[in-house]
């Protein structure tokens, strides 16, 4: 089932001679439980795509359907509610409110949605446990490592049981080991917990965790390939010439 469907999605910044086409008729479909990486050189429009799908920005033309709802027709408040309930965000920077502790940060979407404090906290802590932070519930962001902060952000993105998780360079700020862990976690988010995950990254090794990679250039999708095939790792090793 398609969680995300874009049709002819176009975004033009500015107008007239200074107009810049950031996104040029992009058609993209994302199914439930699918983990898709978007790659491409900087300025290729991958972040713009993510922002449009997340309803953070409005397209110049084209449509975005999230979970069966066409979002360009939604008011700011409706969009906000959709984000709160159906979409989870993980950013590269500024992911957490510095003055709240891990469980408070993770509980934010629920609290903003009017869920009772105790219930919100319980759910947040449950998710923090799943992402492996069960022992750092009361730590403030400045007491957590970068990787741990991103785990909190992922727990926050999942706490409202969204259909879609959007991640913009989630490992851009991390060392390679933490990056690997976060990427695995995102794979888990899609494979085990059944969310559609759309991740923008420039790191092949991180993108390789996805099921599918969308390559973009100059605002267009130039390739869209499934990379999870039946071949086993052993075959891959042999092919590399290591076995």
């Amino acid at each position: 089932m398609a969680i995300v469907e874009t049709k002819g999605l176009t975004k033009v910044y500015g107008s007239g001679e200074t107009a810049v086409v950031a996104l040029d008729h992009v058609d993209l479909t994302l199914d439930a439980g699918e983990f898709v990486a978007v790659m491409g050189p900087s300025g290729c429009g991958k972040s713009t795509l993510l922002n449009l799908i997340g309803g953070l920005d409005a397209p110049t033309s084209g449509t975005v359907v999230i979970d069966g709802r066409e979002i360009s027709t939604l008011s700011d408040d409706e969009m906000t509610r959709l984000r709160r309930e159906r979409i989870g965000f993980v950013f590269q920077f500024f992911n957490l409110i510095p003055v709240l502790d891990a469980s408070e940060n993770a509980a934010l979407p629920l609290v903003l949605n009017g869920t009772g404090a105790a219930e919100a906290r319980r759910k947040a802590e449950e998710w923090l446990g799943r992402v492996g932070l069960g022992d750092r519930l009361r730590a403030r962001p400045d007491q957590l490592s970068g990787g741990q902060q991103q785990r909190v952000a992922i727990a926050r993105a999942l706490v409202s049981e969204p259909a879609l998780v959007l991640a913009d360079e989630p490992t851009g700020n991390l060392d390679s080991k933490s990056s690997e862990e976060i990427a695995s976690l995102l794979r888990q988010v899609s494979a085990e917990w059944g969310r559609a995950v759309l991740m923008v990254t420039h790191d092949p090794r991180i993108a390789a965790h996805a099921d599918r990679i969308v390559f973009m250039r100059d605002g267009r999708v130039v390739d869209d390939t499934k990379i999870a095939d039946a071949a086993s790792a052993r075959v891959a090793m042999e092919r590399v010439g290591l076995l």
Binding site: D77, E85, R156
Partner: peptide, 16 residues
Amino acid sequence: RHDIGMLRATGASRRT
């Protein structure tokens, strides 16, 4: 600014 933007992305309305 960033905290506010993040809250907005997470689902805080303008009124919030």
